[in-house]
Write a protein that binds this DNA or RNA. Structure first.
Lengths: 118, 118
DNA sequence: ATCAGACATCGATATCTGTCAATATCGATC
DNA sequence: GATCGATATTGACAGATATCGATGTCTGAT
């Protein structure tokens, strides 16, 4: 197997009960905060939303670049942040790179915050 | 009326459909990001969770201070951040200050992220 | 082989953030 | 009204972050 053995933050979220149910342990908080930090930027919020609402749930970087008034490296940086925490999957097809949203991850995070039982 | 006319971020969240449904507008992202930024810190996550899981949904600062290995001003700072975005309500009773979680706000935010219909 | 285009990485910089020590404020009590 | 205890505010500083221009690395086509 070629996959890394290190879990991305997103893979560790499903283990916690909702914020409002019981006090979050220190190590749990330390794993969840980076996920929220990745989301807590207006550009990244729009990027994620753009990707998610695309037809197949995935979008080409070429399209994303045009949607913002920012340089290409900046968009690339934001996509990397979202990818590193596991909120976006990355696929290269030919010259183009496609990012896709991890809906399960978003759902888990939403449940954690919103207090919905799982 | 003594209330400020300026809406806290939390009061503007309920107006957006889930992230995954349609692309987030620039101004919507700008209003939501500060909320997530407030949450995106391990200490604040634990603070919020601690307050939320208290009996009456509220907790005295005096109790919160003891739960962390941080200085009193630092805890005060974090509580202020959570209060300013509208995630925590603040009540002074005598010498003590109590913070309470805005569960509706958390629910809205969770739904926005998790993609649950409202 | 060379070239052009798509995307990532690097290096620099300005701004933001978490933390603390010191100090201020406010309410209760003596 | 002097004092004490509970929180908040201020000022300072180290570390993180968003952004850009320049450059690197692929990949497909000429």
């Amino acid at each position: 197997m070629s996959k890394s053995l290190v879990l991305t933050p997103v893979e560790t979220v499903a283990c916690c009960s909702p914020l409002t149910q019981e006090p979050l342990a220190e190590d749990q908080a330390a794993r969840i905060a980076p996920l929220l930090k990745a989301l807590a930027d207006p550009v990244r919020l729009r990027l994620l939303s753009l990707v998610a609402s695309h037809a197949d749930g995935e979008a080409c970087v070429c399209d994303l670049n045009d949607a913002f008034d920012l340089s290409q490296p900046t968009i690339s940086h934001h996509l990397k942040v979202l990818h590193e925490v596991g909120l976006l999957d990355r696929t290269k097809r030919g010259v183009w790179v496609y990012y896709a949203v991890r809906r399960d991850a978003l759902a888990d995070l939403g449940a954690l915050i919103g207090g919905v039982a799982r």
